[in-house]
């Protein structure tokens, strides 16, 4: 498989198909892809998950460490999301320092989870001003067939739900091998999920394959979750070089709640 740039002819083909609400795999433009989740990617991680979104596959692992709190939040633990687009997952990924996509994906996953309030950071404080838990979530793609960010978000959330606290020995040092059964302080009701809308011409679609995604001109990601029973948008980021009109934004806001609930159901079923 080579990493060639898409030809104009292919792009025109996609444009025409999308305008008729058609896709290669038989889905309609706003149809979601299949979601599968497994746990136990690494028994050394405090929690881990493998997510398949269509043919896209991402693994995520949670590690916990003890550190000093940040100066502006003395009584709160912290969250650090990182990741790397390993050349293992696609001929399009290259060795070397992270490119923009490699920075954007963890940052957007971080914001989606943080702003949803899923993690109770105050409960991650061990001793105020001195010791707090830092939650590291690292996401790695294993196979990129598009919608990597949305898949990475599901993997990160699944790994968090799967994670348990490591034990502390008498002197307060972590014993990573002695795992407890205690879960992380996360809300059971809150399930942050992102949906990225891709646009080609006047068509807007969800969960594109890598090829569909490459044909598109622009994209915008919305992360959402329930807060006191109300669906909230927690994060948003538009990318790429063309625009969204006000009407298109309104349309996406009409579509989002329905699609979020649909994805929520799929993920909850896959989480079992």
């Amino acid at each position: 498989m080579s990493a060639m740039e898409m030809t104009n002819v292919t792009k025109q083909f996609f444009k025409r198909a999308f305008s008729e609400d058609k896709r290669y795999d038989g889905r309609k433009l706003l149809d979601l892809n299949t979601v599968e989740i497994e746990y136990g990617v690494s028994n050394k991680a405090e929690g881990s998950a493998r997510v398949k979104l269509g043919k896209t596959e991402v693994i995520a692992g949670v590690k916990l460490a003890i550190s000093e709190p940040y100066p502006d939040s003395q009584d709160k633990g912290s969250l650090i999301v990182s990741g790397d687009l390993l050349p293992l997952a696609s001929p399009r990924f290259e060795l070397g320092p992270p490119g923009f996509d490699g920075i954007e994906i963890p940052r957007l996953v971080d914001r989606m989870i943080r702003e949803s309030g899923m993690i109770d950071f105050k409960k991650l404080c061990i001793k105020e001003g001195e010791k707090v838990w830092t939650v590291f979530i690292d996401v790695y793609p294993i196979n990129d067939d598009g919608s990597l960010l949305d898949a990475a978000g599901i993997a990160a959330v699944a790994a968090l739900k799967n994670a348990t606290m490591p034990a502390l020995d008498k002197s307060g040092v972590i014993d990573y091998d002695a795992k407890t059964k205690e879960k992380l302080p996360i809300s059971k009701e809150t399930l942050p999920l992102s949906l990225t809308f891709y646009k080609l011409g006047n068509s807007i679609l969800l969960h594109p394959t890598r090829e569909e995604q490459e044909a598109c001109d622009t994209k915008v990601t919305f992360g959402g979750s329930h807060w006191n029973g109300v669906l909230m948008i927690n994060s948003c980021q538009k990318g790429w070089e063309t625009t969204f009109t006000a009407d298109e934004i309104n349309h996406m806001m009409d579509v989002f709640p329905k699609k979020y609930e649909e994805l929520h159901k799929k993920v909850m079923e896959a989480l079992k």
Partner: peptide, 9 residues
Amino acid sequence: LQLDGKIQP
């Protein structure tokens, strides 16, 4: 378009 926080659609 960027956003952080909690806002209804």
